[in-house]
Design a protein around this nucleic acid. Structure first.
Lengths: 123, 123
DNA sequence: TCCTAAATCAGTAACGATTACTGATTTTAT
DNA sequence: ATAAAATCAGTAATCGTTACTGATTTAGGA
């Protein structure tokens, strides 16, 4: 039973209008432009709710902060170890083989996590 | 200029002998069996060093803890939202399409991060 | 519209995984 | 053997995140 909330709406809008995969703190700064007295705790709580409902994705790239993605479709994230940028790439069977050519991105390593329910828990 | 250290060796051995993708605290508990007075800080510092040198992988599944993988080859991780297990799966072009059949795993979502250096930073 | 219960909020305190610091110990190369 | 650099154990500090509080907003029935 989830009620409407202006704050959650604004947070979702920030994510839909951004391609930079902001952190919770960055979402907070951005959403403050629309709702100046919003609380950082509110941002965290709603980001968690939106991740749980599948409306957004949480992306951990190992820089100590969670990043959030308003695009919840299945795609890869290219994370640059120098500038820290996170770039979306659609997934197809050639993607992994052809990253250097198609994206000018030199892949060094990758961590992919597929979320779901395992065989044992499906029984 | 990296020196040998018995502690780092033992940590690496724990990861190579494990398929369960332990957290830092779990590595600490395991490595204490061999080096009882090892410090948790030492475990964290060496895990960071090993990740930086590419000898191990850090896998964030969104449960609040970093998990570590002694297998640094490119593969997927299946994370069960019920039991929290993390399972390795080799990557091939059919993998994403056939997860449910081949692994009995029902994929709900996925976050894949490819680490590397982007086009701009390669200039 | 009015009213009540549930949901959400802002603000703040607490938590806990991780990092930084200290002086002692180990490693490596001379 | 010795000295500089690396690493260590132990502990304190950091900081992203979560939990708690009493106040406010939402939703649905009277």
């Amino acid at each position: 039973m989830r009620n409407y909330s202006k704050q959650r709406e604004a947070i979702l809008k920030v994510l839909h209008n951004s391609k930079s995969h902001p952190t919770a703190a960055q979402v907070y700064e951005e959403v403050k432009k629309e709702i100046p007295n919003i609380s950082l705790g509110t941002v965290y709580r709603n980001l968690t709710l939106l991740v749980e409902s599948g409306e957004i994705l949480s992306v951990a790239v190992g820089d100590g902060n969670d990043h959030f993605d308003g695009d919840n479709s299945f795609h890869l994230h290219l994370h640059c170890k120098k500038c820290g940028s996170i770039t979306d790439v659609p997934v197809d069977s050639k993607t992994f083989d052809a990253l250097s050519q198609s994206e000018g991105f030199c892949p060094q390593n990758a961590v992919c996590v597929v979320y779901g329910v395992c065989r044992n828990c499906n029984k």
